[in-house]
Amino acid sequence: MKAAPFCYHRPGTVAEAVETLAAFGDGAKVLAGGQSLVPLMALRLARAEHLVDLGRIAALRYVRGAADSVAVGAMTVQAAAGRDPVIAASVPLLARAIPFIGHFQVRNRGTVGGSCAHADPSAEIPAVAVTLDAELEASGRGRPRLIPAAKFFTSTFTTSLEPDEVLTALHFPVWPGRSGFAVREFARRRGDFAVAGAVCAVTLGQGERIERVAIGLLGLGAVPLRAAAAERAATGTAAGDLDVTEIGHLAVADTDPPDDVHATPGYRRRVGVAMAARALTAALEEAAHG
């Protein structure tokens, strides 16, 4: 249960990190908080000849709020993001998702960017990114680029990052107006990866009608999903007339959940219905009453 030997690199800047990654090609991997990579290396499920530790790049740890978006540096630890006042005020969905990640000892090391780069389909931060249409910023040898969350997560544990690219930041849009946000998930034990879950953002307009709604699903596919059909059905409906269970069923209708030792696809879908309905109910409640 020990990692295989590797060479350790500790760049001070993103440019230096990119250079090191490019120099060693496939043999190099980024090390962020290590909360996913180190167990994989200890179990010899992952191996790297060169580890490029981003831990000392102070420029990757920040939270910056602007009028319509909040930028979070990739190396911001999950615990810091979870108690950040700007995130709490402007991206409440992210703040509420973070306590569901593992345990506080894991959140003290695990990073916001690492969670996205790792791309576990049950992870909370990727689901929030997809639901809010966040953009992920990456730096490689070329110009830095912005990747929409919907294009970032390509499959289980797979993203559209190039091997020599570093994820540098996440940009979360701020939802103005009478909005509400909620996260609901079910895990076998507190802190385990969820069997299934839903995250929801909703804005109410004139006559308590749903002006805008986004429902994200975790654990129900190879990537975090958006429940597009459910969103379409809910939009424009008066909040009081909405049948949230029906919306929950619509949300999971087209999903193809994984089948593993934790749950069957059918069970995951049933849990997904309940979680989507509950998240939507709670988000609507908050939008209506603050």
């Binding site: 350790y8 500790r10 090390l31 290590g34 909360q35 180190v38 530790d53 000892q105 090391r109």
Partner: peptide, 13 residues
């Protein structure tokens, strides 16, 4: 000051 898992951190970190 932060509680962490010492098996998930390399000494060099």
């Amino acid at each position: 000051g932060a509680a962490i898992r010492a098996c998930l951190m390399f000494a060099v970190q």
